[in-house]
């Protein structure tokens, strides 16, 4: 029943889609397309229009204008067997047994009752819920319940999966399990679109990122492309005069960050390639200062280091890092997110 996953056409194409609720423009002229077999991160602050876009993709609601092609069809209903969906707000039938819930949703996706039942037990066993298979779902903890729901949305082995906030409410261990599930699907050529608020998940998992705010598309591209949207920075700590660095063509500006030592410190401990140099100890008397150097695009941070050596600037620390997705997010939607209207 599953078509060839390595189909050349994009699993999803959204073209100039807008959605109005009364006068409120929930989604405003959004276009994007998903390459087959990719993991696509769908980011944006609350009220950005992510869930509305997802609902339109699934044809739960219809766009006001624009068109959507899912797995080559203009209507998601025609290919509903090949799509998996985990909604943002999770819920299960409380009195139904775990296996029965999974099997029920799988039969609604076209599996025969027998196969669905077999698949349900397989999945529950694989994800450590074997003992709960015949328990009603209200006997489960929140995290376990969510796992069951994820399994229910994937039991028919869909080639295109949409997960709305799959990580919310999960503990770190189960977040890891969720990440593994997503990676595993991508490995088998499935296409995954997931929305999240947690940038680290997107950073670790996504091939591409779509950023939305206030119903509009802000950014669409790879992670590297996203990082390139804000300038690279190098942070150094020294007690020597840094005037020679100002003359470098790679450096756009230099900021004195000494007064905000703590912030600088917290950034330097983030996941990034940091290079800590144990510099000379003869720093008595003069105060060590923190500097932040903003670099020109495509500039090599190593050039800064070489200049420092050549000009005898003794470094206590040298910290060169790519901007995190968090920084990208804050910069691109920061002001918008604060004023985002909640519906």
């Amino acid at each position: 029943m599953n078509g060839n996953p390595s189909t050349s056409t994009a699993p999803l194409e959204v073209r100039n889609v807008s959605k109005l609720f009364g006068d409120f423009r929930a989604v405003d002229d959004v276009s994007f397309s998903l390459p087959a077999g990719s993991i696509y991160g769908f980011l944006g602050p609350n009220g950005a229009g992510k869930t509305t876009t997802i609902r339109m993709i699934l044809e739960i609601i219809k766009p006001t204008t624009g068109s959507i092609t899912v797995l080559g069809e203009s209507s998601a209903l025609k290919v509903r067997h090949r799509i998996g969906y985990l909604p943002e707000e999770k819920g299960l039938y409380k009195k139904m047994q775990c296996w029965a819930v999974i099997a029920y949703f799988a039969t609604l996706k076209g599996l025969s009752r027998k196969v669905a039942k077999q698949r349900a037990f397989e999945l529950l066993e694989r994800y450590g819920l074997k003992d709960f298979a015949t328990k009603p779902t209200d006997a489960l903890s929140k995290g376990m319940g969510q796992k069951v729901q994820v399994l229910a949305s994937l039991a028919h082995d869909p080639e295109f999966v949409i997960l709305d906030e799959p990580f919310s409410g999960l503990d770190p261990v189960n977040q890891q399990v969720m990440e593994d599930i997503i990676r595993d699907m991508a490995k088998r050529g499935r296409t995954v679109l997931f929305s999240t608020h947690v940038m680290q998940h997107a950073e670790r998992l996504c091939d591409r990122i779509l950023l939305m705010a206030k119903g509009r598309k802000i950014f669409d591209g790879t992670l590297a492309e996203a990082q390139r949207t804000i300038p690279r920075r190098v942070r150094i700590e020294t007690e020597d005069d840094i005037a020679p660095l100002r003359a470098l063509s790679a450096v756009v500006s230099i900021l004195d960050r000494s007064s905000r030592r703590e912030e600088a410190h917290s950034i330097s401990t983030e996941e990034s390639q940091s290079l800590l140099m144990s510099a000379a100890t003869g720093s008595m008397g003069r105060e060590s200062r923190h500097w932040e150097l903003e670099l020109r695009e495509n500039a090599d941070p190593q050039a800064i280091l070489q200049t420092c050596f050549a000009r005898g600037i003794r470094l206590h620390s040298f910290n060169q890092s790519d901007p995190t997705l968090h920084e990208v997010f804050m910069r691109l939607v920061g002001p918008d997110a604060k004023e985002a209207t909640f519906r």
Binding site: R55, L58, I60, A76, L77, R80, I83, Y85, L86, P87, E89, K90, G91, L92, Y93, K94, F105, L108, K109, Q149, A152, S153
Partner: peptide, 14 residues
């Protein structure tokens, strides 16, 4: 409706 199962259902049926 209140436990949002409806959304999953609506991705499978009209």
């Amino acid at each position: 409706k209140s436990n949002r199962i409806i959304e999953v259902l609506l991705s499978s049926v009209t």
